[in-house]
């Protein structure tokens, strides 16, 4: 359906914006390495089913490889910055201070409690879906500490947030058309979108009106 396609396109767009930002500007100011590492973990645990060869579709499989590949590549590009632009790297590390153990621990616990089956694959899937819902927190924390961000960084966060928000009408659509109700995805999707809501509001008020992102 249209919402799901738009959501996936928005997710793709967010990654392209991020890669272009890092490659062109050769700096990583305002981008959280911790959030990017969490995404590597999210995609690697979510798409373990690639190893079972029970593929849904070519589209699905290609997208999975793309998300794993690009998330690893982003982390590598950011690590490279240690040598190519040490000032920018140091500045990023100085601001990227969110303690991710407070996300990893609870997500692992939630995965043990809420899952569809008590198998390695399903537990990893559930862990990834919980972790994805909060993976943006180090990035948002960094943003709130510095109080402002480059326009490209805010476009990246917006596209990334929009992707999960668009999955919500997709789930409503699928409930009516296929009688499909995936409670875990829906709950974590709502949680994820809620975490972005404050950002969305400021993005709408400032960036979309061409005023640049600055926190009140």
């Amino acid at each position: 359906n249209i919402f799901r396609i738009l959501a996936d396109l928005s997710h793709l767009a967010s990654i392209v914006i991020l890669l272009e930002t890092i490659r062109k500007a050769r700096q990583i100011d305002g981008i959280s390495l911790k959030t990017q590492i969490l995404y590597v973990l999210v995609f690697c645990t979510r798409y373990l089913d690639l190893l079972t060869f029970r593929w849904t579709s070519l589209y699905n499989t290609l997208m999975k490889f793309f998300f794993i590949g690009t998330s690893v590549y982003v982390v590598k590009l950011m690590q490279d910055c240690k040598l190519t632009n040490p000032v920018s790297y140091k500045d990023m590390m100085f601001r990227d201070t969110f303690q991710i153990k407070y996300l990893l621990g609870p997500c692992a616990l939630l995965a043990l409690v809420f899952n569809y089956k008590f198998t390695v694959l399903e537990l990893c899937w559930s862990f990834s879906i919980w972790l994805e819902s909060v993976a943006i927190l180090p990035q948002l924390f960094m943003l709130s500490r510095s109080g402002k961000a480059s326009t490209l960084t805010t476009h990246y966060i917006f596209a990334l947030g929009l992707y999960r928000a668009l999955y919500i009408p997709n789930w409503i659509w699928r409930y009516y058309s296929e009688n499909r109700l995936e409670k875990l995805s829906i709950f974590t999707g709502l949680l994820q979108t809620a975490l972005y809501s404050d950002f969305f509001y400021i993005y709408y008020r400032k960036v979309m009106k061409g005023r640049g992102f600055e926190l009140p």
């Binding site: 979510r46 699905n60 999975k64 999955y167 499909r180 109700l181 995936e182 995805s185």
Partner: peptide, 10 residues
């Protein structure tokens, strides 16, 4: 629900 555990979304 029959759809449980069939992860066809990204």
């Amino acid at each position: 629900n029959e759809n449980k555990g069939t992860h066809d979304e990204l």
